[in-house]
C-alpha cells in the first residue's frame, strides 16, 4: 500500500537520525578528546588513582579535592538545616510568608555568581575576621548559591503531600511541633530532601567563581592552577570530576523519574 502516514514516519526517522548523529558527535567529541589527551602520558591515570603518591606529587590538587568534599558535605548539611524546617514551618504556620520565602530563594537565579562575589567581598572580610580564612568558610556563600535548586526540590516534595492535614492529624494524636516536623513530615519528603542534597553536592563540586575570587581553594580552583603546570594531569582530573558529576546527576534524575513513575 502507498502509505502516506508510513512515508511521514520514515521521514521523521531520517530527521531524527541526522539530528542525533550530528549533535551526538558534537557532544561526545570533547569527551573522547579528553580521554585521548589524558592518555598521552601513560603515568597520568595510574597516578590519579594512587592517592598517597598523588597528594605527594600535586599537594595543591589534593588540598583542592579534600576542600571540595568538605564544602560539598557541609553545604548540604547547612542547606538542609536552614531550608527544610523553614519550608515546613512556613507552610504550617506562616502561609503568608510563603511568597516572600519563595522570592528570596529564587533571587540568586537573577544574581550571577560573579555579581554575588562583588557584594560578598566585604561580608567575607568579617567572616575571615571571626572564623579565619579556611576554605570551608565558602560554605556560607554556597548555601545561597544552591538555594533556588534546593528550594524547588523541597517545595515540590512538600506540594506532593498535604502537610497541613498530616500536621493536624498528628497534633490531634498529641504530637508536639518538633515531633510533627521530624517524625511525620520529614519521612514523607525523604526523596525530595535527598535530591536537594544531591543537587547541592553536584553544584558545589563544580563551583569555581566564588572560590577563586575570594582567594580560597577547591577542586575547580586547583584544576585551573594545575592547568598552568601540567596540562595532561589537569585534563585527566577534569574528566574524572566530570564523570563523578555525571554519575551523581544521572543517579539523581533516574531516581527522580522512578519516583514519578511509581505515583
Amino acid at each position: 500500500m502507498a502509505g502516506v502516514i508510513a512515508r511521514r514516519r520514515r521521514n521523521q526517522r531520517a530527521f531524527r537520525w541526522v539530528v542525533f548523529v550530528v549533535l551526538g558527535v558534537f557532544f561526545l567529541l570533547p569527551l573522547a578528546a579528553m580521554v585521548e589527551f589524558s592518555a598521552r602520558d601513560s603515568q597520568t591515570w595510574p597516578l590519579l588513582v594512587n592517592w598517597p603518591k598523588l597528594s605527594d606529587t600535586y599537594p595543591d590538587l589534593a588540598d583542592g579535592i579534600v576542600a571540595s568534599l568538605e564544602q560539598a558535605g557541609l553545604t548540604a548539611v547547612l542547606m538542609l538545616v536552614l531550608l527544610v524546617p523553614t519550608a515546613i514551618w512556613v507552610r504550617l504556620r506562616l502561609p503568608r510568608l510563603r511568597r516572600t520565602v519563595e522570592f528570596l530563594c529564587l533571587l540568586p537565579l537573577t544574581i550571577p555568581a560573579i555579581v554575588l562575589v562583588v557584594g560578598l567581598a566585604p561580608v567575607y572580610a568579617w567572616v575571615t575576621y571571626f572564623l579565619g580564612d579556611s576554605s570551608s568558610t565558602l560554605v556560607f556563600a554556597y548555601t545561597i548559591l544552591v538555594l533556588p535548586y534546593a528550594y524547588r526540590a523541597i517545595d515540590a516534595g512538600l506540594s506532593a503531600i498535604d502537610v497541613r492535614t498530616l500536621a493536624e492529624a498528628s497534633r490531634s494524636l498529641g504530637a508536639g511541633w518538633s515531633t510533627v516536623i521530624v517524625r511525620v513530615v520529614l519521612p514523607n519528603i525523604r526523596s525530595a530532601v535527598l535530591s536537594a542534597a544531591f543537587l547541592t553536592v553536584a553544584l558545589v563540586l563544580g563551583e569555581y567563581t566564588i572560590a577563586s575570587l575570594l582567594n580560597r581553594t577547591n577542586l575547580q580552583v586547583s584544576i585551573a592552577l594545575l592547568g598552568k603546570s601540567s596540562a595532561t594531569m589537569s585534563v585527566a582530573v577534569s574528566l574524572a570530576a566530570l564523570l563523578l558529576a555525571f554519575a551523581l546527576l544521572l543517579l539523581l534524575s533516574l531516581a527522580g523519574r522512578s519516583r514519578k513513575d511509581s505515583k
Binding site: 500500500m1 502507498a2 502509505g3 502516506v4 502516514i5 508510513a6
Partner: peptide
C-alpha cells in the same frame, strides 16, 4: 490519518485511498 494495510476507500465513487 491512518494507513490501511489493504482495501480501498471510495468517496462519491472516487478512490481516495492514496
Amino acid at each position: 490519518l491512518e494507513d490501511a494495510d489493504s482495501g480501498r476507500v471510495l468517496v462519491g465513487g472516487k478512490d481516495v485511498t492514496a
